[in-house]
Amino acid sequence: MSEEKVAIYIPKSLYEKIKKQVEESGGEFKSVEDYIIFVLEELVKEEEEEEVYSPEEEEEIKKRLRALGYL
């Protein structure tokens, strides 16, 4: 991301905890910063009805749910 950034201070103990999770994430996150941005974005967008499924995926799942009798 080339967006302008700002610095924020967090407790060192929290930083250490996150660092540990980043190390255990199997390469999912590159850095603590990466992790924090992901979590905060998740939190901020949670109230939106975000499109998780692509239109094709959504159709596929609806087809299955229809076959299951749910739709």
Binding site: E42, K45, E49, E51, V52, Y53, E58, L65, Y70, L71
Partner: peptide
Amino acid sequence: YDLRYRKRGSYTEFGIVSSRMVS
């Protein structure tokens, strides 16, 4: 209220519930 939900501003346009909707 179901595995699907009514999309905002519509009557019968349905979305499928995902983990992102669990706030």
